[in-house]
Design a protein around this nucleic acid. Structure first.
Lengths: 151, 151
DNA sequence: TATTGTTATACTCTATAACTATA
DNA sequence: TATAGTTATAGAGTATAACAATA
């Protein structure tokens, strides 16, 4: 008495790219919800982490690391400055050195624990060791693609 | 004499979700390019696969399988019909049974080989067995998340 | 000349809401 | 009352192009 059956065979079954996409979408949605209470989007949170770890880093450098276009970095940083999380200082006539304000550092800590909970929730099926190995493997895959591909 | 150094430590290093996202973005870009000559986007190609494998399937069923909203399925299917790839027949007063036209089946075959080349290119670092195991693991992860999460 | 940052803008993808028709 | 399909539309995210100022 089943009224809804799954297809006998699913053509996406063996497509690794497809499953990576499905997983990535769900992870991003979970991450967005995890950051909602901090009023940050995933990209903004990642930028905060980048600035905390590398104080004085420039916009363009962050953009290169995270593959965010200059044109999109500008309003992103402007928003973080307006929220009082990031402070800018002239590095030279062109570049801005970015640092976290006191508030930015407090928010950064909340970001870190929110992300830790998020990863724990999303990857509960994996042991710590398996998680580490998978992370490394996935990194190798995208960095290899990144060198091969146009852009 | 290095003018551009990477940051001493990257805060994203241990974030599995981050690396999955980076990989997924590059894979989607590669897939889009792979399908360019067929005038199909990744979602359209996946829908073709779904219809080929499950002839007579309905729009709503495809939407549920692929997590595409009804409102977005309508123009998607309309586009495929307009391209002469998909044919519709009344199943009952509400539902449309979808099948591939002769042209649709020819294009489907090209889609399959384009995707095979694409996966070969993206996952060249992985052996066949590793690829299978990783696919299964990733599927488990997203399907688990899918049952847990809102939506 | 190349780089940094900025603005304006367009395109794609996805989400919501309202509606019709049918089960 | 729930489901299938459609339409209109709004919001993110990301892309390109053009520009000013500086290295």
């Amino acid at each position: 008495m089943t009224t809804k059956r799954p297809p006998l065979s699913d053509p996406t079954d063996n497509l690794l790219g497809y499953h990576l996409r499905r997983l990535s979408v769900l992870i991003m949605a979970d991450l967005s919800r995890s950051l909602d209470s901090l009023d940050l989007r995933p990209t903004e949170a990642t930028v905060l982490m980048e600035i905390f770890t590398n104080p004085g880093i420039t916009q363009s450098r962050i953009g290169k690391i995270l593959s965010i276009k200059r044109a999109n970095m500008a309003p992103l940083i402007a928003g973080l400055v307006e929220q009082g999380l990031v402070e800018t200082a002239r590095k030279d006539g062109r570049s801005l050195a970015l640092t976290l304000s006191a508030k930015g550092k407090r928010v950064y800590k909340k970001v870190m624990s929110a992300i830790a909970e998020h990863e724990e929730r999303c990857f509960a099926l994996l042991g710590k060791r398996e998680r580490r190995e998978l992370t490394e493997r996935i990194r190798e895959l995208w960095q290899h693609l990144d060198t091969i591909e146009p852009g």
